[in-house]
Nucleic acid binder design. Structure first.
Lengths: 100, 100
DNA sequence: TTTATAGTTTTATATATATCAAACTATTAT
DNA sequence: ATAATAGTTTGATATATATAAAACTATAAA
């Protein structure tokens, strides 16, 4: 018997709510969708080409996603690469990403 | 080949985003979870006993859910009964509700 | 070493959101 | 008829959010 099934951890619920919050914004929805569709990390610049928003707004949304644990960022030179934490998301909300 | 798979309708995406918005709030999350768990309609009063928030706040959240098409409300006498639109939600985001 | 580029942070602003008290509506009970 | 009950709506308020311009940081290129 899975105790998680009976009473989910508060932090798990919080993480889910953060995911929902992230996906409730059209810009962040597109970012997550794009990252999931390409299936691998993506440079901020490239992301910005596909999701058309001001670069400072983009930076704001990417920070929101990062701080929620939804994405991870890697720096190389003066560019940054963003990865969607697919496994982490899938472990809490299986099937969610493929239905965006 | 499913055209929806390739390019989801704007309104479908909007509905998903509304569901995500609804579930990003702890109060509404609990309401939806409760409605899903009981598996049938529930009186506002009973809901209010389980989800402890001010009745006017509850009314506000229930209106948010109703106007987003996430729930349906039925009036009987001076009481109101709320139903979760499970099928509608499942058709856009299958598996979501069971993972809350 | 100067300049260009990628991205962040700050600041300002407008709008959205959550909350609750108080007044209100409609229905049932006395 | 009057009072009680269930729920909504209206203010008022405090906080959160999204947006973008401008200043800033760090790295790469000239």
């Amino acid at each position: 018997m899975n105790i998680k099934q009976l009473s989910p951890d508060v932090s798990e619920t919080q993480f889910k709510q953060q995911i929902f919050f992230a996906l409730s914004d059209p810009g962040r929805y597109k970012i997550v969708q794009m990252l999931y569709d390409v299936g691998h990390e993506m440079g901020c610049g490239k992301l910005n080409q596909h999701v058309e928003i001001d670069k400072s707004t983009m930076s704001y949304h990417l920070r929101t996603l990062r701080e929620a644990g939804i994405t991870t960022t890697r720096t190389q030179g003066r560019e940054k690469y963003v990865t969607l934490n697919v496994e982490k998301i899938e472990s809490e909300l299986p099937g969610l990403l493929e239905n965006l």
